[in-house]
Design a binder for these strands. Structure first.
Lengths: 168, 168
DNA sequence: TATTGTTATACTCTATAACTATA
DNA sequence: TATAGTTATAGAGTATAACAATA
């Protein structure tokens, strides 16, 4: 990709590769830790963490799916696993009978609490320890800008909402 | 995770989440484009790109695997797919009969060439367009430091080289 | 008719272990 | 014995489509 890269300077290319590599190594390490420590995938941890971080510890499936998963059936699958382990419960919403309320159980909260310190330690060791003065602020600013732009720009041919949507 | 995050400041947590989110959205978009445009996964594209970027267009399986894949069988699997599509060829190395030399075919090069502009355009649009003056340099510097540290620090309980290694 | 969620199914990918062959 | 690679196999995860129920 050295010469054959129209449109990206070597520095841009390097930054792109560094971003992907750093993020991948980080996620791989974190995922390994979560599996070893709590038998949780990163995704499962994120589901629990998001619930734990919500007042009441409950969310609708749809709200929970947002940003975590690309298909609704994927969330159903993962929720099924967490449910089977007693980490969450599911019950129909009183407001809207179509909805399902997902609630973290005490066991779920306990597992998050048990796993979190190591998780955080991994992130600190891999991501923040090597940083120099000012790096954190710089990184936050740049990534914040990029993220904001990404969120404002649904992935070009994004799946707006519902079901079928083909390039046809 | 708001209150229950010992050891990470809110800003650190935000930077961590932003990093993961930005990288994931980027990779998801790029992967989708590669599949639509060339029926290639990101991993397959990286294999081809790495070969294309090598003098002679050939590498040993082992060298090729480095950094791309976590198990040797994974690379064999992917190489099998690319081979079946005529994008690479595999042949025993003349130097070391145990080794396999992987070579990009013309078709492989052509496919990379066809897919690259769109790939690069995606990266530019998602990652670099929203950046402000100086952002690129800042990002490169921070990530470069982090990456260097990661490479120097094999993931704690890394798989040093060979086969079996269990927590037992 | 649109929305919420589940299920069935098929497929992709990954990883471990066993195996072959060469050094 | 160690290294390079393949294969068998099994498991985890994902996505699409069909479905049921409620709004």
């Amino acid at each position: 990709m050295s010469d054959a890269t129209p449109g990206l300077t070597p520095e841009e290319l390097g930054a792109y590769f560094a971003l992907v590599e750093v993020s991948n190594v980080l996620q791989y390490a974190v995922d390994a830790h979560l599996r070893a420590e709590g038998d949780l995938s990163y995704l499962q941890f994120q589901i629990l963490a998001r619930l734990t971080d919500t007042t009441g510890g409950r969310l609708r499936m749809t709200d929970l799916a947002d940003g975590l998963v690309h298909s609704r059936s994927g969330l159903t699958y993962q929720a099924g696993l967490l449910d089977a382990r007693g980490l969450i419960t599911r019950s129909p919403s009183p407001d809207d009978e179509r909805s399902v309320l997902v609630t973290v159980t005490d066991a779920g909260r306990a597992l998050v609490a048990r796993v979190l310190p190591g998780h955080v330690a991994d992130v600190r060791r891999l991501l923040f320890d090597p940083m120099a003065e000012g790096d954190l602020a710089a990184l936050s600013e740049v990534l914040g800008r990029v993220r904001q732009h990404m969120r404002a720009t649904p992935p070009r041919s994004a799946k707006p909402r519902a079901k079928g949507r083909r390039k046809s």
